[in-house]
């Protein structure tokens, strides 16, 4: 018991709840804060827990009454079956290709353009920047009609490729529409925080603008680039509306569509849906757990900074 008590004592001290060093009201406030945060986290994670245990129950056990809130007889069969009975490897591949290509395009263009916006006062600088801010406000769903028309019969390249409907290229092009302005904006704000004296020093050392940008500034911008890349990847990976409008078969359909396909008119295959949903959610959960600070900094750079 004494060891128990001492671990408890250590925990209390570690959380700053020991009354020896602090005023009692401070300690009470901390206790309340922990209690409220703990409750909130418990409530918001409960649905994730429930869909996770649904995914590892035998598919028949999902419809047992009373509902069991513990994973009885855990199994991976639902995960195996969605790859066997449905082309989940293709959906996953499509999601990976679409999200990473979109990210690559937007990060590359966003980085170089963001840098120029941050450093150079060229003609039309303000107007172009304002148009980028405005572009971010366009509701993507408003554009489903024109994007459907354009992708079904693309101008300029239409004669070469025919229709882009139900291709990954259509999704990549469409996803750059909401990711590129965002990438330019975050990177511009990020470069604003990199001191201009570094550019000047590079110039004095005999670097051309390109060399200075690539050798000196770009390495400094790695955290900003990482934040942009992670957000662009997540936005593209999670996108549903355009995938719904622009694709119709497994040659281009992505994971969000694949998951929604488990819903038939009257019947929903919950066990397999849960497994598919967990696969679709995996990158988000991993990014959230390991790269949280990039997501936070990217969002705040993108939203709050002037």
């Amino acid at each position: 018991m004494s060891t128990n008590q001492s671990t408890l004592g250590q925990l209390i001290a570690a959380l700053g709840l020991d009354t020896d060093n602090e005023w009692p009201h401070v300690v009470r406030e901390r206790l309340v804060a922990y209690g409220l945060l703990g409750l909130y986290v418990f409530v918001i994670w409960f649905p994730i827990y429930f869909i996770f245990i649904t995914s590892i129950k035998p598919s028949g056990a999902v419809l047992d009454i009373p509902i069991s809130f513990l994973p009885t007889q855990p199994t991976v069969s639902n995960y195996v079956e969605i790859f066997q009975n449905r082309p989940f490897e293709l959906y996953t591949l499509n999601s990976l290709i679409v999200a990473s290509t979109t990210t690559l395009i937007c990060v590359t263009l966003g980085t170089v353009t963001g840098y120029s916006f941050s450093r150079y006062d060229f003609v039309g600088n303000k107007a172009l920047l304002l148009s980028i801010v405005g572009a971010r406000m366009i509701p993507p769903i408003a554009l489903i009609v024109p994007f459907f028309t354009i992708m079904s019969n693309p101008p300029l390249i239409g004669g070469l490729t025919g229709s882009l409907y139900d291709t990954r290229i259509a999704l990549i092009l469409t996803y750059t529409f909401f990711n590129l302005p965002f990438a330019v904006w975050i990177m511009k704000n990020y470069f604003d925080g990199v001191p201009e004296s570094l550019d000047e020093q590079a110039r004095i050392d005999g670097c051309s603008r390109w060399e200075g940008f690539v050798k000196i500034i770009l390495p400094m911008a790695k955290p900003g680039i990482a934040a942009t890349a992670i957000l662009a990847f997540i936005f593209s990976w999670n996108e549903f509306v355009f995938a719904l409008v622009l694709t119709s078969s497994e040659q281009a359909q992505t994971l969000p569509i694949a998951v929604s396909l488990f819903v038939a008119d009257d019947f929903v295959d919950w066990a397999h849906l849960a497994a598919g949903g967990m696969i679709a959610a995996l990158p988000g959960i991993l990014f959230g757990l390991f790269f949280q600070q990039y997501i936070v900094s990217g969002l705040t750079q993108g939203a709050v900074k002037e």
């Binding site: 918001i44 994670w45 994730i48 997540i234 990976w237 999670n238 549903f240 994971l255 969000p256 569509i257 998951v259 929604s260 949903g277 679709a280 959610a281 988000g284 959960i285 990014f287 959230g288 757990l289 997501i295």
Partner: peptide, 9 residues
């Protein structure tokens, strides 16, 4: 985490 998951899911 909830915000990062696909809305469909």
């Amino acid at each position: 985490v909830p915000w990062i998951l696909p809305y469909v899911m």
